[in-house]
Each structure stands twice: as structure tokens, then as C-alpha cells.
């Protein structure tokens, strides 16, 4: 791999006597896409929060663009530089936007904070970001409550992109969307990565969605990575018993639900 844009080693997070994340190593190439899959309690969201700087690791190191960020930032300039490098998109598009501000205002705030651009330049950049994520002028001027879930998630992606980050962490970013809208956003994320070369850490419980978006995948269970590799290899030829169970639990044509306690016959799962 080229010099990784994001690298974490021995990442650990302990809450009281509960170990939420236990010795996670990961690396992400510039412009790459890393999926982290797992069920509730696997520690995937805690890993995301530590990468972004919302949660401080108990142990381990995180470096972005070669600079350590395991310790809290000293001073505003350092905190802003870290924010410019890594941005996050959350799951709930209804809770992650200020209801009183239009998308254009929200984008303008990020641009004022993170760039030296003047008013004209910022206006041009807002239009450019809108174009990149498929929001027209009317939507950019609307209040969030007038926007649908899919449109709001486009705003959240545009806001993350406004700081020109090297890495965007997407924490279940399409999980709350209806299938027909989810497909639009997944295509959008693929287009954005192809056009501007931003790297993704894509946190999800949904194996099919991860397959569509991530080149490499980590499978987490109870705070540990149980399997990792190219996404297609992990899903087509899972080695770890837990990955196999996850894979076998995904409904698809011909799938039957299985009672785990009950004896299973044949190799259908």
C-alpha cells in the first residue's frame, strides 16, 4: 500500500470494566475505502468515533497523513487541522442538521472556518458542492425540514466534503434510508470518491452495502477484528465462523431463516 492516509495500531477503548474495542489495527490507502462490519456491541462505532476524535482511545495510536492524533489537540489551529483531515457523516439525517439553517448556510460556515475563501469564492464553492452531491439551488436554500431523508444525507455529505478532508468516516450513513434512495446515495458516494479521491471508512451492519462501497473489509465481533481482507474475498470465502454466520444470515433469493439452536442439515448455510 502507498503511505496510508489513516493508520491505527493497537486501538483499545475501555468503559469501566467493559472493553469496547480491543486491539484493532487498520490502515487506509489514499482514496481507498475500508468497510468495518459488525453487529451491535461489536465496537465498530467506537472505532469510528476514535478515528474522528470524538472519543479518546484508552490505548493505541491513530495517525492521519502521518501525524499522530491519539492525544487531544493542543489549541484551536491543531483541532481545525484535524477536522480538515477527517470528517464524519452520521446515520440519522433528521438529527444531524441544524433545523434553523439552510444547507447553503451550513456549508458556508464550514468554508469560513476551514478556508480563506472570500464571499464570492465561497458562493461558487457551495454551488460546486451542491452539484457534486446532486442538490439544486432551491434545495440549498431550503430549511432541512422541507428536505427528504435522502436529500438531507446529501447535505451531510456535502458538508463533510466542504472541508476538503482526506478521509470521511461514514457511520451507518445509508442505514436509515429507503432502498430506492439508498441506491442513489451509494452511487453518489462511489462517484464522489472517483472524482475527488477522498478515502472512506464505511461503518455498517449491512454486508451487501459494504460490498458495494468498500475495497477492504474488517469484520468485528465483541471489540475485536475476527477477519479482514479484500471485501469480495471476505464475503465470498469467509474463514472465521462468525463471518460465516453473518454471511449466512443475509436474506437473498432462495434464503431460508435458520434457528441457530436447532440442528441444521446439509451445507446450505
Amino acid at each position: 500500500m502507498a503511505e496510508p492516509v489513516l493508520e491505527a495500531r493497537g486501538l483499545r477503548k475501555v468503559y469501566g470494566d467493559h472493553v469496547a474495542v480491543d486491539g484493532v489495527d487498520l490502515a487506509l490507502a489514499p482514496g481507498g475505502s475500508l468497510g468495518i462490519v459488525g453487529e451491535s456491541g461489536s465496537g465498530k462505532t467506537t472505532v469510528a468515533r476514535m478515528i474522528v476524535g470524538l472519543t479518546r482511545p484508552t490505548a493505541g495510536t491513530i495517525a492521519v497523513c502521518g501525524r499522530d492524533r491519539s492525544q487531544p489537540a493542543r489549541g484551536t489551529a491543531e483541532r481545525r487541522r484535524r477536522a480538515r483531515e477527517v470528517q464524519i457523516v452520521f446515520q440519522n439525517p433528521y438529527a444531524s442538521l441544524d433545523p434553523r439553517r439552510s444547507p447553503a448556510d451550513a456549508l458556508d460556515e464550514v468554508l469560513r472556518l476551514h478556508t480563506d475563501a472570500g464571499a464570492d469564492e465561497r458562493r461558487a464553492r457551495i454551488a460546486e458542492l451542491g452539484e457534486l452531491v446532486g442538490l439544486d439551488e432551491r434545495m440549498l436554500r431550503a430549511r432541512p425540514r422541507a428536505l427528504s431523508g435522502g436529500q438531507r444525507q446529501r447535505v451531510a455529505i456535502a458538508r463533510a466534503l466542504a472541508a476538503q478532508p482526506r478521509v470521511i468516516v461514514l457511520d451507518e450513513a445509508v442505514a436509515a434510508l429507503d432502498v430506492s434512495i439508498q441506491a442513489q446515495i451509494l452511487n453518489l458516494l462511489a462517484d464522489v470518491r472517483a472524482r475527488i479521491g477522498v478515502a472512506y471508512v464505511f461503518i455498517s451492519h449491512d454486508l451487501a452495502v459494504v460490498r458495494q462501497i468498500a475495497d477492504e473489509t474488517l469484520v468485528m465481533q465483541r471489540g475485536r477484528v475476527v477477519e479482514r481482507g479484500p471485501t469480495e474475498q471476505v464475503l465470498d470465502d469467509p474463514r472465521d465462523p462468525y463471518t460465516r454466520l453473518l454471511r449466512a444470515s443475509v436474506p437473498g433469493p432462495g434464503w431460508r431463516p435458520v434457528r441457530r439452536g436447532a440442528p441444521t442439515t446439509g451445507g446450505a448455510t
Binding site: 427528504s148 435522502g150 436529500q151 429507503d178 432502498v179 430506492s180 434512495i181 439508498q182 441506491a183 442513489q184 451509494l186 452511487n187 462511489a190 454486508l207 451487501a208 452495502v209 460490498r211 458495494q212 471485501t231 469480495e232 464475503l235 465470498d236 454471511r247 443475509v250 437473498g252
Partner: peptide, 20 residues
Amino acid sequence: AARPAVDRTLPRLAAVRGRL
């Protein structure tokens, strides 16, 4: 068609235009 598949990687999802 809009739902991604777990057993194969699609070059692109068949998204439905517009909103619900």
C-alpha cells in the same frame, strides 16, 4: 434492482430517480 447484492459486486446500483 436497487438493493445491493451480498454475493456479487455490481458496477453500479440501479437507483430509482426522484424521491418517494
